Simulated scan of single mutants.
Amino acid sequence: MEKQGMRAAQELNKRQIKQLRALGNHLNPLIIIGKSNLTEASIKQADETLENRELIKCSVLNGSDLTARDAAAQLAEQLGASVVQVIGNRFVIYRETSRDDVEKIKLVR
């Protein structure tokens, strides 16, 4: 997917990461990574979900060959997103949306 590789991850400072972690705590995982690991379909779904929400939580099932940290790094790199947090088998990633009709998260400076 051409669009994904072209986008660079936004550099987040410590205050912004803290803010996004707090926002991510109450989220339910929207992307589930299973035994087939990161497929084109799961990457596309994550891309669309990030465009709609900016901040998403993902979960890695026990049958996957990937750890949550590996999956987070790979997905963030492919989508031009930033890894906010990895705890256990879950992780949170952030990417500012390019859409104007979505309420954007106002990051602290």
Rank of each mutant, 00 (worst) to 15 (best):
A41Y: 09
V102I: 15
L38A: 06
S64K: 01
L38M: 01
S64L: 05
M6K: 15
Q19N: 08
E77Y: 11
R99M: 08
Q74G: 07
C58G: 02
K57Y: 05
G34W: 06
I105W: 06
Q10P: 01
G34Y: 05
S36F: 15
S82Y: 07
E103N: 10
S98A: 10
G5K: 13
T97S: 15
A22C: 08
N28Q: 11
M1L: 15
A22E: 13
S59H: 14
S59D: 10
S98G: 14
A46W: 08
Q74L: 15
R99T: 00
G63D: 12
V84G: 07
V102P: 00
G5L: 12
R95I: 06
I17M: 06
R90E: 15
L79S: 02
V84S: 06
I17H: 04
R7L: 12
V83F: 05
N62R: 15
G63S: 09
V108Y: 12
V102D: 04
S59K: 15
E2F: 15
A46Y: 01
S82N: 05
T49M: 10
R69I: 13
L55P: 01
L66M: 09
D101F: 05
I56Q: 03
L12A: 03
Q19D: 01
S64T: 03
Q4G: 14
G80N: 03
E103D: 13
E77F: 12
L30I: 11
V60S: 03
V86L: 04
T67L: 00
I43Y: 04
E54T: 06
E54P: 00
S98C: 08
R99G: 02
L27S: 03
L55Q: 08
I32C: 04
K35V: 09
I87C: 03
P29Y: 02
A68S: 10
T39F: 00
D70R: 13
Q10C: 07
S64Q: 05
E48H: 12
Y94P: 06
S64D: 01
A73P: 00
T67Q: 01
Q45T: 13
I33T: 04
K14D: 12
S59G: 02
I87W: 02
A46K: 07
C58Q: 04
V60R: 03
E103H: 11
K106N: 13
R21E: 11
R7V: 13
R99F: 10
L23Q: 10
L30C: 13
I17D: 00
A46G: 08
L55G: 07
R99A: 02
A81T: 00
N25E: 15
D47G: 09
